[in-house]
Design a protein around this nucleic acid. Structure first.
Lengths: 246, 246
DNA sequence: GAGTGGTCTAGACCACCCT
DNA sequence: GGGTGGTCTAGACCACTCA
């Protein structure tokens, strides 16, 4: 495997451990090792795939992080019973669109308003700027198979966007808008709340609807804040899971 | 540093990279590197501490996972603005007691009932058993500085507990009860919900109180389910954060 | 081009589990 | 004791960023 390292469609090299992890993942899902079964030992995988043991360990670590396997010191690596069934792992940052798709539904968006306005004090703090500044404020409803599943209030610092951007032209994923401006959201800090109240959302909705609120600040690779979002998910429409470890 | 590897109070060896990470963390918190500053390069840290570069990378990875730093390919490692301020990282599995303590409050428990009973179908599924089985069911209120902050409904498979266990003797952390039975909860899958309703909790509480529900199944090192818990946190009392990455 | 992090290897030795 | 994973090293080479 040393010299035929695969390349992705774009030509970027794919890490050996990722290739190995993908291969093992595929074989797991094909049922080659049922729940509770032991995978080959690290040494065996290393020689079988022609890679070093540390590469094998890197691959197995990925599987373990995603909850597919557990590795027990001095014993071996085993298939967990809970690997499948985690639909939206919250620790993985993905767009709302992707979250909807991960649940097997068709994502959609309904824009309510897109406008530039002065940043609130709250936003100035989040974006770590002083003095008055403008932000692009977006209000949208998120659809899954045509049904509203969330209301989202997002703001982007205006000074990071291309000058002369037409708010009316904004549509689709905000991630894509940011990326077209050369901004990639790499990490986000999310605070989770339960929320309720008439101030949430618009249109037809039960007066006592309960929401799961994800209050997020996104950062680029340089840890600069690029997006602040408050998304109110209608309770029960999605499964939000987290794999917690010690 | 090669031969004076420290030992913890119990005599267990402390990994080099953990020592390094702890040292760097302490220096970060003392303000040696302010937000945005660049840490020494990997090579420099390696020679300064007398360890290999991969050990340094292991330490830096820990810092990055906890959101204290970001490492940028070809540039360096920098202090993030969001490292502090994450009080209860949900991806880290800890007892409720520890969660309360992490918020700087005094934890407490009020037991409402502890009893053995037949497992519900739901529980049979979670514990992956067939046919009727008994569980230990515990209902508690969680206190912080003497105030109720959560209601918790927990069940433990009876066949994993010492025979002849007296329910009346159960108190304090369930984690400790499990550990005294030789069971260590190592990972948990948590589903997050927003909840509301009169069926939640007991005693004095507003009729329309909103709760953040953490529905968890805990597993031991062998991925065997050992504890199922539904904890209703009163909204607003705690900050639950998640660091999300791509 | 100089400097930084990213990946991978080969090998040594340690710690844990089981019989 | 034999087998398995856990940690660490030294070094090679690649990929990215920035002046």
């Amino acid at each position: 495997m040393k010299d035929d390292r695969s390349t992705s469609p774009l030509g970027t090299r794919v890490q050996l451990r990722v290739q190995l992890a993908d291969d093992l993942r595929a074989r797991l899902q094909e049922g080659e090792w049922p729940v509770g079964a032991q995978l080959p030992t690290e040494g065996e995988l290393a020689s079988r795939y022609g890679v070093s043991r540390s590469t094998v360990r890197g691959a197995l670590q990925q599987l373990e992080i995603h909850g597919l396997t557990v590795t027990r010191h001095g014993v071996g690596t085993f298939v967990t019973p809970f690997g499948r069934g985690i639909k939206a792992g919250l620790q993985e940052l993905q767009s709302i669109t992707d979250t909807v798709a991960a649940h097997g539904m068709e994502p959609g968006m309904q824009y309510r308003s897109v406008e530039f306005r002065e940043a609130s004090q709250d936003e100035l703090d989040a974006f770590a700027v002083e003095g008055p500044s403008r932000v692009l404020a977006v209000e949208r409803a998120v659809l899954a198979d045509g049904v509203v599943v969330a209301f989202s209030y997002d703001t982007i610092p205006a000074w990071r966007l291309p000058t002369g951007l037409d708010p009316a032209a904004v549509k689709g994923s905000l991630f894509h808008l940011l990326e077209s401006a050369g901004i990639v959201s790499k990490t986000a800090v999310a605070d989770i709340h339960a929320a309720r109240g008439a101030h949430i959302g618009w249109g037809e909705r039960p007066p006592d609807q309960v929401y799961l609120l994800l209050e997020q600040t996104h950062y680029d690779a340089s840890a600069q804040p690029v997006l602040r979002s408050r998304t109110y998910f209608i309770e029960g429409r999605f499964q939000f899971s987290i794999l917690r470890t010690r």
